[in-house]
């Protein structure tokens, strides 16, 4: 049995070790904010933070995580108070919202440690798909969350 720490809570996992972390989070632990979009590490809907770094969870296993703590969208803040969550609301970013957990977690990297990202930084880092096309608002929200 292996243990997986998600949002500060440790779970004993008995599932097949080849199960991608996405499905452990969604179907075993029951946190549904992390989404399935492609299963092949291309769309970014399944993005989580592993030891604080954004990673796509649909193609990584417990072994890849190697005990590092995982943060999902549910654990980003207790009360939606993370600057990105606040900026996302202020700019009314989401449409269907299905990509947004992944987008927000992806964006954490851009503003970590007081960084002020440029548009070019945003272009490089924010490479998750949003079918609804909320890119312009995400860009604006990232800038305002960064205080830039």
């Amino acid at each position: 049995m292996a243990s997986l720490t998600v949002n500060g809570q440790t779970y004993q996992i008995q599932s097949d070790p080849s199960t991608p972390v996405l499905w452990l989070i969604r179907d075993v632990i029951g946190l549904k904010g992390t989404k399935y979009g492609c299963g092949i590490s291309v769309c970014g809907a399944c993005t989580i933070l592993v030891g604080g770094t954004p990673q796509r969870s649909c193609q990584i296993t417990m072994a890849d995580i190697n005990g590092a703590p995982v943060t999902t969208i549910e654990g980003l803040s207790a009360d939606s108070s993370h600057p990105l969550q606040q900026a996302w609301i202020a700019h009314q970013v989401p449409q269907c919202g299905f990509c947004q957990s992944g987008q927000i977690l992806r964006a954490t990297q851009l503003i970590a440690n007081g960084k002020i990202p440029s548009d070019a930084d945003i272009n490089v880092t924010m490479n998750n798909i949003c079918v609804c096309g909320t890119y312009t608002r995400m860009r604006a929200a990232i800038h305002s969350a960064a205080g830039g």
Binding site: L31, K32, I89, Q92
Partner: peptide, 21 residues
């Protein structure tokens, strides 16, 4: 006016069809 369903879409609590248990 702000969209009423957006707060749940930024904190993972929005329930889509595929999130039903």
């Amino acid at each position: 006016v702000p969209r009423p369903e957006l707060p749940a879409k930024v904190n993972g609590t929005a329930v889509y069809g595929s999130d039903v248990v």
